[in-house]
Design a protein around this nucleic acid. Structure first.
Length: 122
RNA sequence: AGAGUUGGUUAAGCAGCCGCUGCUCACCGAGAAUGGUGGGUGGAGGAAAGUCCGGGCUCCACAGGGCAGGGUGCCAGGUAACACCUGGAAGAUGUGAGUCUAUGGAAAGUGCCACAGAAAAUAUACCGCUUCUUACAUUAGUGAGAGGUAAGGGUGAAAUGGUGCGGUAAGAGCGCACCGCGCUAUUGGUAACAGUAGUGGCAGGGUAAACCCCAUCCGGAGCAAGACCAAAUAGGGGAACAGUGGCUUAAGUCACGGGUGCUGCCCGCACAAGUUCCCGGGUAGGUCGCUUGAGGUGUAUGGUAACGUGCAUCCCAGACGAAUGGCUGCUCAAGACAGAACCCGGCUUAUCGACCAGCUCUUUCA
RNA sequence: UGGGGGAUCGUCCAAUGGCAGGACUACGGACUCUGACUCCGUCAAUCUAGGUUCGAAUCCUUGUCCCCCAG
């Protein structure tokens, strides 16, 4: 199985300005568990985009914040072509600070599946 | 061998695949900025942390000096500077190697010292000790008065130099010896300080991380500093033009009309607008500041050391919704604390371990 | 990221370096036929770790947490 799809994660695949975030926050579809809360909304961009919110109050140490963001970003990168074209915001909860890496990845896999069901036609 | 102490180094490693990011090269496209693809190369720490000090840098203020406020505080040196470091002194502690110390001034002044105690700072006197006079009494002694003393006294964190001998009515640095303390001289040392000699006869408690005094240092703010480019909207300033007709080559001048609101229209009234262009400030956004620096490594040399100097060599993160990760396999001691955001020098705090070097103590063997 | 302020009973506030106090709450009692109000009493705290001092909530140092400001 040769994977010819390029699994990049470029700056234009990220949510960067406040207007983009506000647009998702206005009328999102939610998906949550103990580690993450995902907000998703349709977009007119050619590809899905990801925004991260990992607050200092939820996860105190900078090392752990970076770890959660890296895991989330990499999972998004690997799943981007199976996703519908949506803007997604991932909020991390306090339980993600001490969770194992594999546990976080399985949790994100479930979230991506759920998004596919919620946006079936796209 | 065990126990300890001081200083230093390191902060799991290897391979494959998929990614992120700075620089650079090649190709494609293009007027250019730049964009895309591919290759090469670099990519978190000893504390990056806390923001506790010091400096660079930037802007503001500023003739000079002082006050206020704040920091530092044994001595000398190092340094861009420091509250840091090095060496030394003194004191404390440990068998020792070592470790720790905000370690100037209390006869410049002010304040405070609860409770207890006679008394907490003024040469004071509660209980005592003791002399004289007097009353009582056989004496011992007791009471009163006038003195002399500070040896002893429960207390307290702290009590008016300590011990011994002499001395005395009782006592007392009252005298003497030793110790402590102060002063003077001298020797060593840059100095802090130490030694020696002489002398004074005790000067008078503690507290300066209480005010304070003395010496010395400090202008304020911080890269969200600051500089540049610069939409849309609102608003500021300036200029030009308003439509028609007459005179006039034209400019100009005269007459009429003209915008908005009050009413859909007219009259009337009120307001001074309208269009275009330019200028300045400046928001969103973007660019710079942004990493070559009190830099690293090696070597020589001066210095006890911190550190300095010379030469050679290297370029070693620079993001901005924010880069070091994910998957797989292997090895072992099974991986701690923890993530750059303008930069640097320190301090403090967190930390599984591993290794190296110096030194000390105890035991045993030679 | 930078700058500033704070932490005292369960809550809100006091406290010249000398026994940590008040109000509300909680609990117990009194008053009342009962409850409320009122009165009396009890319990309950100096963010952490060091240092200075005879003695620290207070002075100094360190760490933790909370709040505010700068887009």
């Amino acid at each position: 199985m040769i994977d010819k799809i390029q699994l990049f994660f470029k700056p234009e695949q990220r949510l960067r300005c406040e207007a983009d975030f506000d647009a998702v926050f206005s009328e999102p579809l939610r998906s949550r568990d103990q580690f993450f809360l995902l907000l998703a909304r349709n977009t007119n961009q050619p590809h899905p985009r990801l925004g991260l919110i990992v607050s200092k109050k939820k996860i105190r140490k900078a090392v752990h914040r970076n770890r959660v963001k890296r895991i989330t970003r990499d999972s998004f990168r690997l799943h981007q072509h199976q996703l519908p074209v949506v803007d997604v915001i991932v909020l991390a909860y306090q339980a993600a600070e001490q969770a194992e890496r594999l546990v976080l990845r399985r949790s994100l896999d479930k979230h991506w599946e759920k998004l596919k069901k919620q946006f079936p036609t796209l």
